[in-house]
Simulated scan of single mutants.
Amino acid sequence: MNFQTIQFSIRDGIATVVMNRPDVMNALNSQMRAEITQALTDLGRDVRCVVLTGSGRAFCSGQDLTDAAAVLDIQATLRDEYEPMLRAITDCPVPVIAAVNGIAAGAGANLALVADVVIAAESAAFIEAFTRIGLIPDAGGTWFIPRLVGHARAMGMMLFADAIPAKQAEDWGLIWKALPDAEFAEGVATAARKLASGPTGAYRKIRTLVSASMDNDLEDQLKLEARLQGEAGKSADFSEGVQAFLQKRPARFTGR
């Protein structure tokens, strides 16, 4: 794949997608959205985990406001470009880590929050910056943020558009973990390696269950758990996990 606005690589089962427009803090234009979507949609069977991050000092500063065509019809841009990109993450067959190396603002913040796990450097911050330019949060922010941090904090983030430092975001439950900058790269790499060597099929089922739990009542959730656990119990990974446990050795999962 030949990309212009992102860097894409695969090593040891880990696909790394780096947003690479550092001169504009990795602002999202139409081409970058298309390339992120393509990279995450065309993953090969050897990929077991995805890391999404940014180059330079920012993760992503949100919509590129100089991208005139996208700004001219925001509704169409959200429908035709943002939604496929976000769906490529939520429908990804393997876990997606957002490695937030710096500022994540506007749609850039919500691009991070749609990932399965968000790990941020302590110098990073999250900003629902939309009201600063007279807009409302989009790119899934109004769905994800209340579910992550509750009504009061979601409203505060969206109305005031203040920067939420990574450590505060961790304390609120907005993200999984904030790491000291010196430990950030290795922390992300360690997490990616762990997920890449894990039971990929079980991870997919966990995502399905957690997403469904937002709308299911307990009875429906228990039924879904039972069905998906039944499927997991027939997998090669479950058989390997049991054998590894009995033999007191690390499991060698294959994602099947």
Results as ranks from 00 to 15, higher is better:
residue 171 D to F: 11
residue 172 W to P: 05
residue 193 R to S: 08
residue 81 E to K: 04
residue 44 G to Q: 14
residue 87 R to A: 13
residue 95 P to H: 11
residue 143 W to S: 05
residue 72 L to R: 13
residue 71 V to N: 15
residue 146 P to E: 01
residue 30 S to D: 05
residue 14 I to Q: 02
residue 218 L to D: 09
residue 139 A to F: 14
residue 178 A to L: 04
residue 70 A to T: 05
residue 112 A to N: 09
residue 156 G to I: 15
residue 140 G to D: 00
residue 136 I to W: 08
residue 174 L to M: 02
residue 17 V to E: 06
residue 239 S to D: 01
residue 115 A to S: 12
residue 75 Q to P: 01
residue 143 W to Y: 08
residue 102 G to W: 08
residue 108 G to K: 00
residue 112 A to K: 00
residue 157 M to E: 04
residue 194 K to A: 14
residue 140 G to V: 00
residue 163 A to P: 12
residue 219 E to D: 14
residue 239 S to R: 02
residue 86 L to T: 02
residue 64 D to I: 02
residue 7 Q to D: 14
residue 43 L to F: 09
residue 27 A to S: 13
residue 216 N to L: 08
residue 40 L to D: 04
residue 119 I to E: 15
residue 117 V to H: 13
residue 54 G to I: 09
residue 224 L to V: 00
residue 107 A to Q: 04
residue 214 M to V: 07
residue 23 D to N: 06
residue 99 A to H: 00
residue 124 A to F: 01
residue 196 A to E: 03
residue 70 A to R: 09
residue 70 A to W: 02
residue 90 T to I: 12
residue 200 T to L: 14
residue 80 D to Y: 03
residue 104 A to G: 11
residue 200 T to D: 13
residue 92 C to I: 12
residue 96 V to I: 07
residue 183 E to P: 01
residue 255 G to Y: 00
residue 52 L to F: 01
residue 44 G to N: 12
residue 43 L to Y: 03
residue 163 A to T: 12
residue 134 G to V: 15
residue 225 E to I: 08
residue 251 A to P: 14
residue 23 D to R: 05
residue 205 K to F: 15
residue 138 D to F: 04
residue 5 T to F: 07
residue 204 R to Q: 14
residue 146 P to F: 01
residue 122 E to F: 10
residue 226 A to T: 10
residue 66 T to L: 01
residue 92 C to K: 02
residue 112 A to W: 00
residue 180 P to Q: 05
residue 36 I to F: 07
residue 91 D to I: 06
residue 194 K to L: 10
residue 115 A to I: 02
residue 154 A to C: 04
residue 21 R to T: 15
residue 197 S to P: 13
residue 133 I to L: 10
residue 149 V to T: 04
residue 134 G to H: 07
residue 242 V to D: 06
residue 218 L to R: 11
residue 218 L to A: 07
residue 83 E to S: 02
residue 173 G to V: 11
residue 210 V to G: 00
residue 144 F to Y: 05
residue 83 E to G: 03
residue 166 A to R: 11
residue 214 M to T: 10
residue 241 G to T: 09
residue 35 E to G: 12
residue 114 V to N: 10
residue 172 W to R: 03
residue 213 S to N: 11
residue 76 A to N: 08
residue 150 G to A: 05
residue 225 E to T: 09
residue 129 A to C: 14
residue 118 V to E: 12
residue 255 G to A: 06
residue 62 G to N: 01
residue 100 V to C: 10
residue 136 I to Y: 05
residue 43 L to E: 02
residue 200 T to F: 07
residue 227 R to P: 09
residue 141 G to S: 08
residue 77 T to I: 01
residue 245 F to N: 15
residue 166 A to V: 13
residue 37 T to K: 07
residue 170 E to H: 00
residue 27 A to C: 01
residue 76 A to Q: 09
residue 167 K to L: 13
residue 37 T to F: 11
residue 11 R to Y: 06
residue 87 R to I: 11
residue 47 V to A: 03
residue 137 P to V: 00
residue 220 D to Q: 13
residue 248 K to D: 15
residue 171 D to Y: 15
residue 206 I to R: 06
residue 227 R to V: 14
residue 190 T to R: 05
residue 132 R to C: 06
residue 128 E to L: 05
residue 101 N to L: 09
residue 133 I to P: 03
residue 175 I to R: 00
residue 49 C to E: 04
residue 43 L to P: 05
residue 247 Q to D: 12
residue 146 P to T: 08
residue 93 P to V: 13
residue 96 V to R: 06
residue 132 R to T: 07
residue 29 N to K: 10
residue 33 R to W: 01
residue 43 L to N: 03
residue 161 A to Y: 14
residue 165 P to Q: 04
